[in-house]
Design a protein around this nucleic acid. Structure first.
Lengths: 357, 357
DNA sequence: GGAGAGATAGAAAGCGCTTTCTATGGAGGG
DNA sequence: CCCTCCATAGAAAGCGCTTTCTATCTCTCC
């Protein structure tokens, strides 16, 4: 039924070994022979059997990119960058050539699904795995992931963390095959809050992400550090509300914070999407931005510049990080010293923040 | 080095065949034996070798989801829905159980990459392939894709088109394994323009997507149909500008259209993202929305309700379509009659459109 | 002109798993 | 008490490919 290597070999009147060599191109084959084989491949419409090839060669061209939420542009941008960096690196053009199959897996932020996908990728003997975005902030799960990644690394899978904090004590052996690109969420958040403080704001509310995420914690810590330095460390818990990374959560949190403290002059959101919800709530309450209340986001997603007013935020090098992760995953780039690189966030001041009233 | 089935068998003191049967659970195995095997699996930390298993069983658990732009929430939402519908269908908890590896592949809208990914998936003997979003509007490429899909279908891969027009005459054999869920882009676009017409607008500009996409064409056709019926079919070409599906394109197109026809009272965009750019351009020119110019988008992405003013648009059942595609891909749902189902778009009127001045 | 060096092609042994076919018990029926 | 039948388990033959080890053959150099 399906065409196999042997069929191609028969038609080209060569041995299967030769066909394999033509297809993989790492062994000298006479031009005439090669052409005969290629013709046979074309005529028979032959497509390599991936599983068979992976089994025999004990390698695979699958590269998995794990994201927390595929519908969130934050991850979309990173994943897209990873893929295109890999495509470029792969070079290819050759029939059987080093084409990597870069695929993204959506964990939906669930630790179980994350582990499941990791197992599935391990099962496929993936060439590399890229984990993007914040991790679940739980020692148990962290250890489970670290263990799984260590096993993957040992089995020869390259592991790259992109926009995620370093693994908790991964063990020596794994360290080699593991590269981490982390965002300076804490520093970015700190600078953002300092910016607000500099504008004279004293009563600021914080709309945090889900409690169990490292990203949430780091951004919150940055914010609180700035607040504390400014002598505003007292009321922090009351002026913080947690919720998912979506607009609705921002909307509701803004309402809640305003209820708790009607005198707020600034609202800092865990990310841009949440900030959008915050803006909507403010508008619905008849408050002007930034005249009555300043609003700030995080990430600088594409839509943030189009918000009205345009969002003050912290720009993360999403594209750059993704591209670098892609190169690390293909081995096109050497891992940073110590296996860890931190990428800073840049404060982007736009119209949504102004002087405190 | 790595643990194999045979190792597990040795440790559990059974034959490899038995281990395989325990793991795949489709053959009676005594409870005591099963437990012994499971214990061995745990103790050895055994993970099935996917390629070997796929080769022997001639099946794979890979499911590919092709998207045009992974950073675009339009695709993110569909892909997410496909994945979760499949996860749910797969059920599983069993160790070796029917876990599908749902992965999304980013074509970046490039026909070549689309074909490449299809080949890569074919190579992996994917269980199913879901193509999402509009196709490239080129007979040559359409035929190539159709041929490839037909081959995949023949090889036992389920093929689902989601939010994409039906294939050009796919051939009888393929028809069976191919299901198409298409959006009524044309109808939605028509109703949207009718809405504007009903508000008294007579001079409307249209910011279209890339010329070579079916989505672009269908939406444009709907718009033009409405315009023509209203007797405004004359100036259509002059009042249409094409560009990519991004905000920048919307910004530039709006400027260009205003230059061509300063008296425009409404601007219809190819999608919400583009509409955002249009709004930005209008604002920069000092024009009020909708008082001076009405703006409309398409898709009703999550951010559209937060735009200021909130965007009038056409809501597409992205989530529903994705979920259904996921079920079709796993075989959890029977294909629609004729293999084709059309999903309508719902006009959502918000604040960005008002009476013509 | 013969021998060693390259270049090129083939033979065959797996890679780790699934599955058909076969074997071995013990339970139940006559 | 023997034989048949079901329930289980094992043996072994591949699945389609890669790759090591060989086998030719053609140059090239002395």
């Amino acid at each position: 039924m399906t065409v196999t290597l042997a069929d191609v070999a028969a038609r080209a009147r060569v041995s299967p070994a030769t066909v394999s060599r033509v297809l993989n191109g790492n062994y000298p084959v006479a031009t005439a022979t090669r052409e005969r084989v290629m013709r046979a491949v074309d005529e028979l419409d032959y497509v390599v059997n991936g599983p068979a090839s992976s089994l025999a060669a004990a390698t695979s061209d699958l590269v998995g990119i794990l994201v927390n939420d595929i519908a969130d542009p934050f991850f979309g941008i990173i994943a897209g960058a990873v893929q295109s960096a890999m495509g470029r690196a792969g070079g290819g053009g050759a029939v059987g050539g080093g084409e990597k199959l870069a695929v993204v897996c959506n964990t939906g932020g669930s630790p179980e699904r994350e582990l499941t996908y990791l197992t599935l990728l391990q099962r496929q003997r993936a060439a590399a795995v890229v984990l993007t975005g914040g991790a679940v902030d739980d020692p148990g799960h962290g250890a489970a992931v670290a263990a799984k990644l260590a096993r993957l690394a040992v089995a020869g899978t390259r592991v790259v963390l992109c926009g995620r904090p370093p693994l908790p004590a991964a063990g020596e052996d794994a360290g080699a095959a593991l590269a981490t690109l982390t965002f300076d969420n804490e520093g970015g958040a700190r600078r953002l809050t300092e910016h607000l403080l500099g504008l004279g704001h004293r009563r600021l509310g914080y709309v945090a992400g889900p409690v169990e995420r490292t990203t949430t914690r780091h951004r919150l810590e940055g914010h609180r550090a700035a607040m504390t330095v400014a002598g505003l460390g007292a009321d922090l818990d009351r002026l913080t509300v947690h919720g998912p990374y979506d607009r609705r959560s921002g909307y509701e949190a803004a309402c809640e914070l305003l209820r708790r403290e009607p005198g707020l002059t600034a609202l800092v959101a865990a990310n841009d999407t949440v900030a959008l919800g915050v803006c909507a709530a403010l508008r619905d309450q008849g408050l002007r931005i930034p005249d009555d209340v300043s609003v700030a986001g995080f990430d600088d997603l594409p839509f943030s510049v189009d918000a009205v007013p345009a969002l003050t935020t912290v720009r993360l090098p999403l594209h750059e990080a993704g591209a670098r992760a892609g190169r690390l995953a293909t081995g096109a780039e050497a891992p940073p010293p110590g296996g860890l690189a931190t990428m800073g966030g840049e404060l982007v001041v736009r119209a949504s923040t102004g002087r405190a009233r």
